[in-house]
């Protein structure tokens, strides 16, 4: 199972996940979201933000990393 699954058939490339990822782990490649597993901390914000329901995050965040809408705190 991948840490972050992105359904490219549902992704409409709006860039909301890219803009609000606290670790800047997402980017748009050919108008589809793509994740850099090296940067991803598995906080799940993109899963909540995605207006297309195209993202599922399977990797849990480490307990010491508190993530809010405003980013890492």
């Amino acid at each position: 199972m991948e840490a972050v699954e992105i359904n490219v058939l549902w992704c409409k490339g709006c860039g909301v996940c890219v803009a609000f990822c606290p670790k800047k782990a997402l980017s748009l490649v050919g108008e589809k979201a793509q994740v850099d597993p090296e940067l991803c901390i598995g906080c799940g914000m993109c899963e909540l933000y995605c207006p297309d329901l195209a993202i599922v995050v399977n990797k849990p965040t480490k307990k010491n990393e508190k993530v809010t809408e405003e980013g890492l705190s």
């Binding site: 058939l9 549902w10 409409k12 490339g13 709006c14 860039g15 909301v16 899963e47 909540l48 933000y49 995605c50 207006p51 297309d52 329901l53 195209a54 599922v56």
Partner: peptide
Amino acid sequence: RDLIRERFFPHIWCPGCGHGTVLN
């Protein structure tokens, strides 16, 4: 994902529409 009717996806809303986020 088990709570949606997957056969109707991708949904009708425009790219970046906030309605999708509320549904989510």
